[in-house]
Amino acid sequence: MRARSTSLLLLPGLAFLLVGFLLPAAAMLFAPPGVTFLQVLERMGAMLTDPYDLGIMWRTVRIGLVVTALCVVLGFPIASLLARSQSRWAGVLLALAIFPLLLSNVVRTFGWLVILGSNGVIGQILTGLGVVDDAPQLLYTEVAIVLGLVQLFLPLAIITCYSAVAQVDPGLDEAARGLGASRTRAFWTVLVPLSLPGIVVAATLVFAGSVTAYTTPYLLGGSSQRMLSTQLFSYASVTVDWAAASATAIVMTVLVFLVSGLSSLVGRKGATS
């Protein structure tokens, strides 16, 4: 293909990417309307010293870390089970794990309102058994957000780990077992280390998704459990504070980039050692 026709193929897509994504994003981050970049930086500096704003950042990171840990701990066993099984049920269970990815996050998150709400299933069970007199506040807590996010991102963790486990030669675990290692030992010394790059990718995707998710903290966290995303929305739409909105957007983007960069560094190091 000649260079001229190649550029003709590329041009419409590039122009679109520029107008529909790159230019607006750059303009918003570095030069919001009526605000200088210096003012955005000042605002960010104020946020990084303000206890309320710092609390929101810390909550976001904390929830992201807990959700990531839970998704790996629950997702990896499921992935190894499905990838190694010969059973015909494995296909069904794999489909069941992937299906939620197609389903609206809003629909998936609504279920927790029924379970955790003031008249919710858990509250009814606890009061019904006489464990407590009044149903505890479960909705609009960090626990609710964590549950909602684990539900949302577990499928992603499972399929990423699944691809990693599927690439590990089953002969290797059998060799370890043949050499006298217990199942548990073969799992920890063969399967986990060899799947580690996939686990790192899964953890990165889950973390990046959790710290930027909006639907879950909005529905299950309410205004008492603000995260960066719900805070960003309120700056942009309720108070219309462009400097604060851009500063929050930069913090969120840097957080995601930092973790992605760190993970690809770990991945590369793992590949060479």
């Binding site: 629950l74 549950l147 799992f187």
Partner: peptide
């Protein structure tokens, strides 16, 4: 028929994962 995950802990985690999803 898989060799490694008949472990009760792994099984429990897997069930918990499906319940949450």
């Amino acid at each position: 028929r898989s060799l490694r995950l008949r472990h009760p802990v792994a099984g429990t985690l897997a069930v918990a994962g499906y319940v949450v999803m």
